[in-house]
């Protein structure tokens, strides 16, 4: 089906890894540089969407199964809310990150922000990949000339 587009396929193979690496950078370096969980989640999803657009839906579904995308959607919200519940459990207000290091509140803030941003990123990447699957699964294959 995809015997043509040689350049696109080669470039995609090179670029996808870099995009994923950049997503991790934005995710875990978001408190020092621009970006954060939302942007990282989108970039992560973009890597898989690019792979799917170039190599076809069935190939990307082998790498990133549909059930995983659906589970990630909920998992992120649970990570976020769970962070709040941990602080509640230890007697602090909901989402008060002091709980993670009461001796050094700013360290606690770092841990809390790290966890919360992870939750945001997981949910966003799951949602965007799921939406892409939902759209693309319904689309019949169109040959290049039809565009």
């Amino acid at each position: 089906m995809h015997e043509h587009h040689l350049i696109l396929r080669v470039v995609t193979k090179i670029v996808v890894g870099t995009i994923i690496l950049f997503a991790f950078y934005v995710q875990f370096h978001g408190d020092f540089s621009p970006g954060g969980g939302f942007q990282a989640g989108v970039i992560m999803a973009v890597a898989f969407i690019l792979y799917g657009v170039v190599f076809g839906l069935s190939k990307v579904k082998q790498v990133f199964p549909v059930w995983l995308a659906h589970k990630l959607m909920a998992l992120g919200v649970l990570i976020y809310a769970g962070t709040g519940l941990v602080s509640l459990f230890y007697g602090y207000p909901f989402l008060d990150y002091t709980v993670f290091d009461p001796e050094h509140p700013t360290h606690g803030q770092h841990w809390g922000i790290w966890l919360v941003e992870l939750g945001v990123g997981v949910t966003v990447s799951g949602v965007i990949v799921s939406i892409y699957y939902a759209f693309a699964s319904r689309t019949p294959h169109i040959s290049d000339e039809d565009w």
Binding site: G30, I113, E117
Partner: peptide, 26 residues
């Protein structure tokens, strides 16, 4: 103590709002 103030506001000062936003995305 986080250099990117935007992240500090979104994830800590307004953490509860952001939880709502994640719920909206979900």
């Amino acid at each position: 103590g986080v250099p990117n103030m935007v992240t500090g506001i979104l994830a800590s000062y307004r953490g509860f709002d952001t939880l709502g936003e994640v719920a909206v995305v979900f």
